[in-house]
Design a protein around this nucleic acid. Sequence first.
DNA 1: AGACATGGAGTGACCGTTCACTTGACTGCA
DNA 2: TGCAGTCAAGTGAACGGTCACTCCATGTCT
Lengths: 342, 342
Amino acid sequence: MSDRPTLRTVAAKAGVSHQTVSRVVNGDPTVTGGIRDKVLSAMRLLDYRPSAGARALASGRTEIVGVVLPHNPGFAFSNDHLIRLVGGADQELAARGYGLLLSTREVPDDAASAHRRFTRRRQVDGLLVEAGVGGEALPALRSAGYPTVVIGYTDEDLHCVHPDDEGGAYAVTQHLLALGHRRIGVVNGPPENQLAMAARLRGLRRAFADACRAFPDDLMEHGDFTAPSGYAAAGRLMARTDPPTAIFAFNDGMAFGAMRRLREDGRALPADVSVAGFDDTAAAELIDPPLTSVSLHSVDVGRRAARILLDLLDGRPPTEHESVVPSTLRVRASTAPPHVAT
Amino acid sequence: MSDRPTLRTVAAKAGVSHQTVSRVVNGDPTVTGGIRDKVLSAMRLLDYRPSAGARALASGRTEIVGVVLPHNPGFAFSNDHLIRLVGGADQELAARGYGLLLSTREVPDDAASAHRRFTRRRQVDGLLVEAGVGGEALPALRSAGYPTVVIGYTDEDLHCVHPDDEGGAYAVTQHLLALGHRRIGVVNGPPENQLAMAARLRGLRRAFADACRAFPDDLMEHGDFTAPSGYAAAGRLMARTDPPTAIFAFNDGMAFGAMRRLREDGRALPADVSVAGFDDTAAAELIDPPLTSVSLHSVDVGRRAARILLDLLDGRPPTEHESVVPSTLRVRASTAPPHVAT
DNA sequence: AGACATGGAGTGACCGTTCACTTGACTGCA
DNA sequence: TGCAGTCAAGTGAACGGTCACTCCATGTCT
C-alpha cells in the first residue's frame, strides 16, 4: 500500500500492458492518443515515478556524468571559474536528461580516490574532469575507459576544452604595447599549471613578435597565484636596474598583490605603472583602480565540454580533439600609457 | 567476453556462491579469511566493479543525495560560499559512501523543475537545498517526502543549517560601537533574503541594546547585494543632515560599492568613515583598505548540513531542528575610531 | 480475393544486486 | 552420545525497468 507504484501497477490501472506504459514514459510516438491519455492519467493518479535504478540496470546507462573538480580552499581565485564551469555543463547536460555527480577533492590527493568513487561503482556514463585535479589522476581515469572530457590542458590523449589563454595573453600584451609600454614585466604562474601558463606565454611572445620586438626574458618572475606571491614578484621586478613600466600578472590574485606592493612603494596606478591580470575575477572591477584583465567565459567552456561529452556518449566522435573557447580582454583603469621617458 | 563481470562470474571463479561475493563486497565480517582472500583475488583478476543500478534496484537506496543550488551568474559574491558549502558536504557524505548529484538552476525558475529532476526519477535518497533557490521550491520539495536539509533559513518545517548571521552582525556592531561610533548607517539586503537579513538586523539591534542605545532606524538603506546598489545607498546615507560615521553593509559587495562612493566623495577611509561588510569574500582582504567583515565558515555549514542529512537517512532524527554555525568577525583596516566631534 | 506489408500493443526473459530463508558443519553442555 | 545453539555459506525469489519478439488488426497491391 505504501509501496511506490511500478510500471505494472500503472498498467493494471490503465488496462494496458506494462510495455505500453514504458512507451508512454519514454515518449514513444507509436502510442495512440487515447491510450496515452489513459496511461498518463493513471500515472498521475498513482503518483508514479520511475525507478532510476531499475532503468539503469536494464538499460546499462545511468544518465549521470561524473564531474571531478579540484577543491583547494586556499586557491580562492578560481571559485568563480569552477562554479560557472559546472553551471554551464549542467545547462547542457540537464537538457539531455543527464545529472551531474560531483566529486570535489583536495588537490593533494592520492590519484586514485577521486574518480574511483564513480568508476568503482559504475554509477556514471562519462566523466568531466577539471585539469586542476592533477596530472596523476588523468592516466588513471583514461584506463577506466569512460568517455572523458578534460576541462583545461592535458598531455593525455583525451578530448579537452579550455579558454583561449594564448589569445587572451596576446590581447593583453598587444594592448600594453599599443599604449606605448616597452618594458613589460611578467608574473608567471606556478609549475602545476604549466600547460596553461605556457599558452599564456606563447600569446605574450607572439604579440611582441607581431610588434617586431622580443619579450625581454629577464623581466619574468614566478608566483603561485596568491596575492602575497604577486606582491613579492612585483617587488623583485621593480628592483631591476631598468624596471618595467607595466606588469602583466598571469592571474588576478597576483595582480592584486602587485598593485598593493606598487602602491606601498609610493607609485601611482596607473600613472607610474600599469597592471593587468588574467581571469577577470569578481574582485577585478571592485578594486581601485579597476583591473584590466581577461575574461574567460567559463560558462561557455562548461557548455562546450558537456556537448563534447554528449557526442562521445552518443557514439558520435566529435570532430575536434581540442576545443578552444575565445576569451575577451576587459580594459579597465589599471592600464594607461607610460610616463614619457626623460 | 567484453561484458563486465557480475557477482556470479566472480563467484564461479572463486568457487563460492554469489551471496558470499556480495558479502565480501559489502564487508560482511562473517566471511572467513581464507574465503575472503579467494574472492578478493578473483575480483581483482576479473576487474570486478559492482553495478550501482542493480544495487539501487535491489536495496531501494541509491547512496546519492541531491544538492540543489541557486545559480545566478550575476550574483558573484556568493560563489565562494556555495563552493565551500558543497566541498564541506562532500567531505562528510563521501566518507559515508554517498555521492552528490548536483542541480544548479537559474534563480528565477519554475519551482518544479529544479528538484523534480531528482525526485521524479527517484535517483536520490535525500536532498540538500540552498535556501537561495527560492521559497516556492521548498514546499514542493517537502511534499516529495525526501529527507531534506535546508542550508539557510526557511519557514517550512524542515531541518536547516545556517551561519550565525545574528551573532556576526552583533560582533560587527559591537566592534563599531566600541570604536566610538554612534551613528552607524546600515545597508540592508534585498527582500529575497529576508530571513537572513532579519537575523543580521536582530544582531545589530541587540548590540545597540546591550550598549544601552537604540539603532536609529532612519539610518537604514536597502540594496540588492551588488556593488552599484551599495554605491547608491552610501550616497543616500551620507546625504542625511547628520550623516553616519560608519557604514555597515550586509554583504561585502555592497560594502565595496559604498567604499567607492565614499572615496569619490573625497572622504578618507577609514579616517572619515569606517566601513564594514559581511561574508568575508576573497576580495575583502585584497581591497584597499582591507575590509572588516564577517567570515561564515561555509565549509562547516556544509559539513553540518551533511551530517544532519546522514542522521535523517539513518533514521536517527537529529536532536536540533535548526543548527547554527558560529561566524567570526575579521577586523581589518576599513574600520577605525571616528573623528573626534567638534 | 488472397498474399503481404505496416504499425499499434502485448509477452516473457533478463539486467545484477539484495533479502529472507535454508542448509550444513561444528560447538558445548548435559 | 545426543541435541540445541551458533555461525559460515548457499539458494532462489524479488526489485522495476528494457529489449527482442510475437501477435493481431488494418490497409494495399496484384
